[in-house]
């Protein structure tokens, strides 16, 4: 479904991704872990079409199509969703309006009818309830004055409404309390299906107790230095990243 090959990217001459390979098939859940500044967010943003980075080598394909040639919104229309590490505020635009604009934009790009306004509202409210999201947040401006946890839950709400094929969740667990973590994880799990793939970027193995990954990758200094099963996360939790780096050096 998503195929990243030899991806190198830099910003202002500094290389951030130094050859990333990643294969994601439908139905899979991948976790990407790694030290701060290793390039996890950069990787997800490049997959989604952020222009601040120069891709110098490699390719990114989604369902066989060259993603790097597509504008951001067309990638979204293909079914790629990014849960932002730092969700963006949009003053004066109500959360519901924003969501509806997003849904209808994606539907229009796929040649589908617009969603009926009343149906849409019912749908959004139902999902918000599942996420135990205060309904008042639906009519407030997008992310403005939301608490850290509310912003993250709001990202998951957007994901649940947009029903992407590939969801990249960048540190969605950061800033969530224990209960919220469970609720958000349930939301993500509800979306799991044989046609969908999910990539979670996280620092904590705790999340992976709830969202059990098929693969765990360790990204370090712009390279995936280790890939394993869910036990790798447990090992990382115990031992940190140091041993991996040494192992890599010795290899």
């Amino acid at each position: 479904m998503l195929s990243v090959k030899g991806l190198k990217a830099s910003v202002g001459g500094t290389e951030i991704l130094r050859g990333v390979d990643l294969e994601i098939r439908p139905g899979e859940v991948h976790a990407i872990m790694g030290p701060n500044g290793s390039g996890k967010s950069t990787l997800s943003q490049i997959i989604c079409g952020r222009q601040d980075y120069d891709v110098t080598e490699g390719e990114v394909r989604f369902e066989g199509e060259d993603l790097l040639q597509l504008p951001v919104e067309e990638r979204a229309a293909r079914g790629i969703f990014l849960g932002f590490q730092y969700p963006i505020e949009i003053p004066g635009v109500s959360n519901t309006y924003f969501l509806r604009a997003a849904v209808n934009a994606v539907r229009a790009a796929r040649g589908e009818e617009e969603m009926d306004a009343a149906d849409f509202l019912r749908h959004v409210r139902a999902k918000a309830k599942l996420l135990e999201l205060d309904l008042a947040l639906l009519s407030r401006p997008v992310n403005v004055g939301f608490s850290g946890g509310e912003k993250k839950r709001n990202e998951i709400l957007q994901m649940m409404i947009l029903e992407p094929k590939l969801a990249l969740l960048d540190e969605t667990d950061s800033g969530l309390d224990i209960d919220a973590l469970r609720v958000v994880a349930e939301g993500v799990n509800a979306l799991r299906s044989a046609e969908r793939a999910i990539v979670v970027v996280t620092h904590y193995q705790r999340l992976l107790d709830y969202i059990v990954p098929d693969y765990v990758h360790v990204l370090s200094a712009g390279r995936i230095i280790k890939t394993g099963g869910k036990e790798l996360a447990l090992e990382l939790e115990e031992r940190g990243y140091g041993w991996l780096l040494e192992e890599k050096l010795q290899a």
Binding site: R50, V72, E73, R75, P87, I90, G92, A101, A105, V106
Partner: peptide, 22 residues
Amino acid sequence: QLFYCRQRGMSEEDAVSMIVNG
């Protein structure tokens, strides 16, 4: 802001108009 809106599927022009309206 533009990247966020476009990642959600909106065109750049629609995003600008939405942000300005906000």
